[in-house]
């Protein structure tokens, strides 16, 4: 049985741990609030962009755009390279957040390789990069400079060269593994196919406004499609940051709660032992006195 002194030491150490996890929980909560605001603020742009593209794209136009064209699979002579962009966090202690994303990425890589692609990895965030390097994969690009506040420029710098490679016919598929921030508690990993662009379709047929297009629709689409791709990347970054903070908060909250339970249990044991010791000492005294009198 643990001595009283050892128990006291454990109580102190768990109390200190609880202080740390509580602090991390509070930090994550405040970062989460800001990240959530950014997710919400990014919605109008994405929505508007989708509507505009839906109005512009027609099936016959789709064939003429490098970014919309669907390359043949490698088995039929199409490009043999594919790219997977994996977003993870730079820091750990966020519950299953990073391992969920890594699992999803592994699943996608395996699937793409089964189709005959050579998969190139683009890693964002230390955790994902660390894992895939450990299992012996190399990265085409490693980015650990994108922290808690991703910007549209960050997103653009990631996808720019991928768009060029795709348009040149070197890449067959570009996929993005990110978290989907549905709510604070629901943030499953998901894969978005960034390229070829899945053009959004107009809600209702026939009522398409008769636009004056200036310049011609081809040039317009050429300008708008890259915006769409960059925006998909930006949303991925923003949502994943929000999801990271959300799962860190949840993880730290349960760590704090567990520490509290542990402290309660340890204190109870400690007090029971202390009382037992006192009782025993009194019993010894009384016994000793009785022996002397006898």
């Amino acid at each position: 049985m643990a001595t009283n002194r050892a128990l006291k030491g454990r109580i102190r150490s768990v109390t200190n741990t609880r202080k740390i996890t509580r602090t991390m929980e509070l930090v994550a909560t405040s970062k989460l609030r800001r990240a959530q605001q950014r997710v919400v603020a990014a919605r109008p742009y994405a929505q508007a962009l989708r509507e505009v593209i839906a109005d512009l794209v027609t099936p016959d136009l789709a064939e003429r755009f490098p970014l919309l064209r669907r390359p043949l699979p490698p088995s039929k002579g199409g490009p043999a390279r594919a790219a997977v962009i994996l977003i993870t966090s730079n820091r750990g202690l966020a519950g299953g957040f990073n391992s969920n994303l890594i699992k999803e990425a592994t699943r996608r890589i395996t699937a793409l390789e089964a189709e005959g692609y050579t998969v190139e990895l683009i890693g964002i965030g230390k955790k994902g990069i660390g894992f895939f390097k450990y299992i012996g994969r190399t990265f085409r690009t490693e980015r650990i400079d994108i922290g808690d506040r991703p910007t549209a420029e960050h997103a653009a710098s990631v996808v720019e060269e991928l768009m060029a490679d795709f348009a040149a016919g070197d890449l067959g598929v570009v996929e993005l593994v990110q978290s989907s921030f549905q709510s604070v508690l629901i943030t499953p990993p998901m894969t978005v196919r960034v390229l070829p662009v899945e053009a959004p379709v107009a809600k209702s047929e026939g009522v398409r406004p008769d636009y004056i297009l200036s310049p011609d629709p081809v040039t317009l689409l050429e300008q708008v499609l890259p915006l769409y791709v960059r925006n998909a990347m930006y949303r991925g970054l923003v949502e994943t940051v929000a999801a990271e903070q959300a799962s860190r908060r949840t993880a730290m909250k349960s760590a704090t709660d567990n520490a509290g339970d542990l402290i309660d249990a340890l204190k109870r044991t400690y007090n029971r032992q202390r009382q037992a010791q006192i009782t025993q000492e009194i019993a010894e005294l009384v016994g000793g006195a009785a022996a002397l009198q006898g």
Binding site: D210, Y211, L213, S214
Partner: peptide, 19 residues
Amino acid sequence: TAFDGEIGILPNHAPLMTV
């Protein structure tokens, strides 16, 4: 400022898309 010069939009303009 459009790609080819300035453009002014007043209320009830016809549908338009421009770079």
